[in-house]
Simulated assay, not measured.
Amino acid sequence: MSVESMRTMTANMQSLKQSAESGGFAISPEGAEAYVKAIEAAQKDLRQIDQHMAVLQQPTKLGTSPDGQTLSRYNLESATGGSGTAGIVPAMDQLKTALEEARTAMKKAVENYHAIDESQMK
């Protein structure tokens, strides 16, 4: 998964949350359950990936030559963010936050669904 695709997913989930909070999105409990399961599966996968993220945040051992040092810095910046790169680690952190926001959005969307049902029964 690329940093760009994680950014897109993050933006989409934030939009989903805003829509649910404004009442513009409602979903049945059954429909929400499927989304929540998918969110939980993604969160589980991210927790497993987290176990390996520490390795990415360490300088690579490419020797003491100027080229080796430059490449080592480049690798580290690609992981953690730096000049010209967003970094995979910050992108993953944003995705984790967005997934939790999406989970919250599903709960709110179910509340919206029930509110619509109740208003139509009156």
Rank of each mutant, 00 (worst) to 15 (best):
A98P: 01
G82W: 04
K44H: 13
F25K: 13
S2K: 10
T64A: 11
M106Q: 10
A42I: 05
I49Q: 07
R7S: 09
L95E: 03
S119G: 03
A11E: 12
E4T: 10
Q43C: 07
T70A: 15
E33W: 00
T70C: 04
T60E: 04
R47C: 00
V55P: 00
I39L: 14
K122C: 01
A102L: 07
T80A: 09
A79E: 04
D93F: 04
Q94E: 13
D117T: 10
S2P: 12
M9F: 07
S119N: 11
A20Y: 03
T104A: 12
H52A: 10
S65A: 05
D117V: 13
M53P: 00
E30F: 02
F25S: 08
E4P: 02
K96S: 06
G81H: 08
A54S: 11
G87P: 04
G63H: 06
R7K: 15
G81K: 08
Q43D: 07
D117R: 15
P59H: 10
G82L: 03
A105S: 06
T70R: 15
E33F: 03
E40L: 12
A54E: 09
Q58N: 10
G68I: 01
Y113E: 00
P66K: 10
D117K: 15
Q43V: 02
R7F: 02
Q69L: 11
M9C: 03
L16N: 02
K108W: 00
I49A: 14
A42P: 02
R47P: 04
L76M: 09
L71K: 08
K122L: 10
K108V: 11
E4H: 12
R47G: 07
Q48T: 10
A105K: 00
M92R: 07
E21H: 06
L71S: 08
T64N: 14
P66T: 08
L99E: 00
R7P: 02
N75L: 12
Q120E: 13
N112L: 02
D45G: 09
E101Q: 15
S119K: 15
D50K: 09
T8S: 10
F25Y: 14
E4W: 02
Q94L: 05
Q43G: 11
S2D: 14
H52K: 15
V110M: 05
A105W: 03
D45A: 12
A34K: 15
K17Q: 13
G87E: 06
K17L: 14
V110H: 01
I88K: 00
E118Y: 11
A79R: 07
Q18M: 11
K96A: 05
